[in-house]
Simulated assay, not measured.
Amino acid sequence: MEIQPYRFESIYSLGHNCQVAAQLKRNGLRRQAGPWDWFNFASAAEFCGVIRRRFEGFMQLEHLEAYGKSVNNYYVRDRQSTCLSFHDFKNTPNQPPLYDYAEFRERLDRRIARFNDCLSSERRVLLVRIIQHQHEAEAIYASIHETYANPHISMLFILHGPESDISKLPSFAEDARLVRIPRGRTWEGDTEAWAAIQSKIRLE
């Protein structure tokens, strides 16, 4: 089954990690940043909860904890949702963790407002998410459609597998597509597979 229509006015990553946003950008399909682009948010159940709450309480300062760090950034967990951030909070000498939260919050709120506005409009939208199990797709699909009024939302769900080819999987809805692709060797995934599945998608 192919996604119809092929042309979209907006395309957003739904995570669960930054591979989706990176591959959308690589293939010329990422026009603007979305709220999920650079988080690691593997739990489909918690993700659906954030969607249904329209982000209420999401990544609020009182729920955040720094649990590690790299040379450049702190690793931060939202205890309420289990969402992880690896890129948003700077590791700056002589500054405590999360000292730059206000800057992060302003950026995230702007992206959330843009996302909510788009999914409450009538623009043709494609949402793309990596999932770990097929049943997650149906749960995420339901949470989106129960929360947002836009009747023109299509979804593309990506599963990683050990096979070297691309496989289309049976879908549960006309406006949802499930595809299994090779896992790839780096955090960016299999670039050729991503290019193949996005080759017929156009962003107007």
Score class of each variant (00 low, 15 high):
residue 110 R to I: 06
residue 110 R to V: 07
residue 110 R to C: 10
residue 111 R to C: 10
residue 111 R to K: 11
residue 112 I to W: 04
residue 112 I to C: 10
residue 113 A to Y: 02
residue 113 A to H: 05
residue 114 R to K: 13
residue 114 R to P: 12
residue 114 R to V: 15
residue 114 R to E: 15
residue 114 R to I: 13
residue 114 R to Y: 13
residue 115 F to Y: 09
residue 115 F to H: 13
residue 115 F to M: 07
residue 115 F to I: 02
residue 116 N to Q: 15
residue 116 N to F: 07
residue 117 D to V: 10
residue 117 D to G: 13
residue 118 C to Q: 07
residue 118 C to T: 07
residue 118 C to P: 09
residue 119 L to Y: 01
residue 119 L to E: 00
residue 120 S to L: 06
residue 121 S to G: 03
residue 122 E to H: 09
residue 122 E to Y: 06
residue 122 E to V: 09
residue 122 E to Q: 13
residue 123 R to Q: 14
residue 123 R to K: 13
residue 123 R to D: 07
residue 124 R to N: 07
residue 125 V to S: 12
residue 126 L to E: 04
residue 127 L to F: 04
residue 127 L to S: 14
residue 127 L to Q: 09
residue 127 L to M: 10
residue 128 V to Q: 12
residue 128 V to F: 05
residue 128 V to S: 10
residue 129 R to W: 00
residue 129 R to D: 03
residue 129 R to L: 00
residue 129 R to N: 06
residue 130 I to R: 11
residue 130 I to Q: 11
residue 130 I to C: 10
residue 131 I to V: 07
residue 132 Q to N: 01
residue 132 Q to D: 01
residue 132 Q to A: 03
residue 132 Q to H: 04
residue 132 Q to S: 00
residue 133 H to D: 09
residue 133 H to W: 08
residue 133 H to Q: 12
residue 133 H to C: 14
residue 134 Q to G: 11
residue 135 H to G: 13
residue 135 H to Y: 14
residue 136 E to V: 00
residue 136 E to I: 02
residue 136 E to T: 00
residue 136 E to H: 01
residue 137 A to E: 03
residue 137 A to W: 01
residue 138 E to H: 10
residue 139 A to T: 10
residue 140 I to Y: 08
residue 140 I to R: 10
residue 140 I to G: 13
residue 140 I to M: 12
residue 140 I to N: 11
residue 141 Y to S: 12
residue 141 Y to Q: 07
residue 142 A to I: 09
residue 142 A to H: 14
residue 142 A to P: 09
residue 143 S to Q: 02
residue 143 S to A: 04
residue 143 S to R: 01
residue 143 S to F: 00
residue 144 I to G: 13
residue 144 I to Y: 07
residue 144 I to D: 07
residue 145 H to I: 02
residue 145 H to R: 14
residue 145 H to Q: 11
residue 145 H to S: 13
residue 145 H to K: 15
residue 145 H to L: 02
residue 146 E to F: 05
residue 146 E to V: 04
residue 146 E to K: 09
residue 147 T to D: 03
residue 147 T to K: 02
residue 147 T to W: 01
residue 148 Y to N: 05
residue 148 Y to G: 08
residue 148 Y to H: 02
residue 149 A to E: 09
residue 150 N to C: 14
residue 150 N to P: 15
residue 150 N to G: 15
residue 150 N to I: 03
residue 150 N to Y: 04
residue 150 N to F: 05
residue 150 N to R: 14
residue 150 N to M: 06
residue 151 P to D: 06
residue 151 P to E: 04
residue 151 P to H: 08
residue 152 H to S: 14
residue 152 H to T: 12
residue 152 H to W: 05
residue 153 I to C: 06
residue 153 I to W: 01
residue 153 I to R: 08
residue 154 S to C: 08
residue 155 M to P: 13
residue 155 M to S: 12
residue 155 M to L: 15
residue 155 M to Y: 08
residue 155 M to C: 15
residue 156 L to M: 10
residue 156 L to F: 11
residue 156 L to N: 11
residue 157 F to V: 11
residue 157 F to L: 15
residue 157 F to I: 11
residue 158 I to D: 02
residue 158 I to P: 08
residue 159 L to K: 11
residue 161 G to C: 09
residue 162 P to Q: 03
residue 162 P to V: 01
residue 163 E to R: 07
residue 163 E to Y: 00
residue 163 E to M: 07
residue 164 S to A: 09
residue 164 S to L: 02
residue 164 S to E: 06
residue 164 S to D: 08
residue 165 D to W: 02
residue 165 D to V: 00
residue 165 D to H: 04
residue 166 I to C: 06
residue 166 I to K: 04
residue 166 I to F: 02
residue 166 I to G: 04
